[in-house]
Design a protein around this nucleic acid. Structure first.
Lengths: 342, 342
DNA sequence: AACTCATTTGTAAGCGCTTACATTGATAAT
DNA sequence: ATTATCAATGTAAGCGCTTACAAATGAGTT
């Protein structure tokens, strides 16, 4: 019959089933508003034509996409993977699809991606961290796209957030470090510019120091991208310092893993000679040698809760409630008292 | 002025600039088909209204979405992250957006996702591995969506593929293992059902054994999901065997990392008492202790090349050419000759 | 029997954009 | 002066779907 080679449309199905397009649409979207007999006929046509509704057309018609966008700094390492997976799982349960893109920690790229996602009709957006040009929030406002911040908890910020208190978490870890007897602390932080999580973690350490009323007002601090090799490099530099720090706290587990690798290369034994700590408690933390003492972040819980809240916002059931996720220090083997010799 | 609260449309811009919608559209899509003066006026209107074109509308009008979909088995660990990142980077360079979703190694879920992506108007699809119901390929055919397989290379398969020869790669590694003197080999494989990569890797080992003309026709084999804990578990079971294997080859680095962790817990020293090998050479491989002897897969290269080829297919410049990516064994410390004592 | 009301289905408008085609006005060629 | 040509812009159809509203049908009420 020289059938048209292109994909079947609602119209084709309607013709095949001998009904109107409206009826077909109803069969697909609210089956109970159509009588059993016709529904069967329509469904059969759908089957035999292998019809798949055109999403763009649907979006245009209903002005909803059932899509949530997420812009994460990177997909390259595992930091965001677990939380995002949970986010997606919960979203799917609620009937939404996740669109992910990564900004490579570049604010300009992030802006671009936000625009793209909005243009694509995302019903809501998940953003990582609060630090962002106000203009972006304005844009989101104007386009009426609900958005939520994760990986950070700041109830007073512009946007609601589902996350954890980075500074407090790190502060707690620092307290343990101090309690172990360390006084010469060094820090390998992620790049703090435009990254409120990294900033807060540094601040957390300062806070702990202050609280102890110690004379230590400053400590060696290296900022570097969240990459294993960078962590290794930074560690080497720190070890060249005189006096050498007795503990190297790291902005996350990836940096810590790098530090550990370098320690091994330099024949510096951890934790006997130098202690190392991480942050995140990703899988890596339990695998490296020695296993990392780090801050455990319940990423999955965070992901799920963020999804629930964002969906509630999208569906108009919430105006955006912030949720604080509790972290805790997990003690493994990379932190021990400093060497006795002074 | 009681401005409409909803997002501005092409029409709004047109009015604001005092031109027709066609002209605005041209300014945005083919600026040279419009005179400088009007363009400026239009662009200004775009700016001041903070206009973002509606993607769905555009897709409907041009029947192209400049979107590529990818369905990967999991985002939960790093196996696919690097390659996918490279895939995305190259795609962006060519003006396409990537939509990722994960199937959790579930064929049914994958089918679902494929339909979703097609409905969303993906111009092309990236699939992992060849093993798949023919019905799916039929569906893709019917919807005229070009698709490409990655992480596997099989020039004779239904779909073109950009990947590597899993069986040959593993065979080469097995040869090294044999050359080191091992005869009691055990394998921790991923689940082979519906996973041609896992199957091929097992086959590669069998091949190596056969080629050596050895009497070893079978070897202990445990299939388990690609998770660290599962790798650890499997390793423990293998160590309980009598006679105990002198080497445990693993289906990928994640399983190997688990094996290593368990070895440490059991106080079995690697490689002195038992050797362990991985596959993939993800970052993890260099960090664990001892560092893994494994198969290096140039994931980034694969990602980029897959993107290039798929875009070429989408743009009608190619009918689908398969590309083989070369892997090589990287020698680190987890593989050594078996203990001398027999 | 006449009427009301609910249920099922159909009709057609409209979502925001692109683009084939029509129109306009200016310049060049005759 | 007249006409052909071309560049810049406008007009309007249509992409595939949903849904407000209308129409038709049938059951229950009085």
């Amino acid at each position: 019959m020289g059938k048209n080679r292109s994909a079947p449309t609602l119209n084709d199905v309607a013709k095949a089933a001998g009904v109107s397009t409206a009826t077909v649409s109803r069969c697909l979207n609210s089956p109970d508003r159509v009588i059993e007999a016709t529904r069967q006929r329509v469904m059969q046509a759908v089957e035999s034509l292998r019809y798949t509704p055109n999403f763009a057309a649907r979006v245009m018609a209903v002005k909803r996409s059932f899509t949530i966008g997420a812009i994460i700094p990177t997909m390259d390492n595992a930091i965001f993977a677990r939380g995002l997976q949970a986010f997606q799982d919960q979203l799917r349960e609620d009937g939404y699809t996740l669109l992910v893109s990564s900004s490579a920690y570049d604010p300009e790229a992030e802006r671009e991606q936000i625009r793209t996602l909005v243009a694509r009709g995302a019903d809501g957006l998940l953003l990582i961290g609060h630090a962002r040009e106000p203009e972006i929030y304005e844009y989101l406002e104007r386009h009426q796209v609900p958005s939520l911040v994760a990986w950070s908890f700041e109830p007073d910020a512009t946007k609601p957030s589902v996350g954890f208190n980075n500074s407090e978490a790190m502060c707690e870890l620092a307290r343990r470090v101090l309690a172990a007897g360390h006084r010469r602390i060094a820090l390998i932080s992620g790049i703090t510019k435009g990254n409120d999580r990294a900033q807060a973690r540094v601040a957390g350490i300062q806070q702990a120091l202050l609280a102890e009323g110690l004379a230590i007002k400053k400590f060696p601090l290296i900022e570097t991208p969240y990459e294993i090799d960078k962590g290794a490099e930074a560690f080497a530099r720190l070890m060249a310092l005189d006096p050498r720090p007795t503990v190297v706290m790291c902005g996350n587990d990836v940096l810590a893993a790098g530090a550990l690798r370098e320690a091994q290369r330099l024949n510096i034994s951890v934790p006997e000679q130098v202690s190392v700590t991480g942050f995140d408690d990703i899988e890596l933390a339990g695998i490296v040698h020695p296993a990392l003492t780090t801050v455990h972040v319940p990423h999955r819980e965070m992901g799920r809760k963020a999804a629930r809240e964002l969906v509630a916002m999208v569906e108009g059931r919430s105006l955006g409630k912030s949720v604080c996720i509790n972290t805790h220090v997990v003690t493994r083997h990379s932190l021990a008292p400093p060497p006795a010799a002074e």
